[in-house]
């Protein structure tokens, strides 16, 4: 039995809900961290896309969130835990094209009901849990060679 391998890197970030100008700052940081760690470009891009769509969701629908980035051997994990309104029907929210976005979100070029689908499609493993009135918890795993 070998010892469990330690994580190569971990960092937490904070996102403020409603701050539309700040959306994308965390994913830009995650991208540059992963690049510096020597993670291949296509994996960095996937991680940046899933964290960016998740950031857009947080600024659009939540009060605040913590993003945990963990890089382990063979894997990049991104966890987004928000405090906010939560999602009443996850199956519906996961349907491409289903959206509750307002005009402000649409003006940014989002809100077409694709965010969670994009997150799922770019993740090798995706989990979502949500409680109405409390918040939403996303866990994304992307494998690295």
């Amino acid at each position: 039995m070998g010892e469990p391998k330690p994580n190569l890197y971990s960092e937490s970030f904070h996102i403020e809900g409603g701050n539309f100008n700040s959306a994308g700052i965390v994913s830009t940081s995650i991208k540059s961290i992963l690049k510096k760690l020597g993670i291949p470009g296509d994996i960095v891009r996937k991680a940046a896309i899933v964290s960016y769509e998740a950031e857009i969701n947080v600024v659009s629908y939540a009060k605040k969130a913590v993003v945990n980035l963990t890089v382990g051997p063979g894997v990049v994990r991104i966890e987004v835990i928000d405090e906010g309104q939560g999602i009443p029907n996850i199956d519906l929210a996961m349907q491409e094209g289903y959206s509750t976005a307002d005009q402000r979100i649409r003006e940014m070029g989002f809100g077409a009901g694709m965010g969670l689908c994009n997150i799922k499609n770019y993740s090798d493993d995706f989990h979502i849990e949500s409680e109405v009135g409390k918040g939403t918890h996303l866990k994304m795993t992307i494998q690295t060679p």
């Binding site: 994308g24 830009t28 296509d42 940046a48 769509e53 940014m108 989002f110 694709m114 994009n118």
Partner: peptide
């Protein structure tokens, strides 16, 4: 629609768009 750009656009491509806010730059960077 930036979600479409995120779903389909590939690295090294030009992005043609009529949207001008900072999210276009964030999307391009990602």
């Amino acid at each position: 629609l930036m979600s479409d750009v995120l779903a389909f656009a590939k690295a090294g491509s030009l992005l043609l768009t009529g949207l001008t806010n900072t999210q276009v730059i964030r999307t391009a960077n990602v």
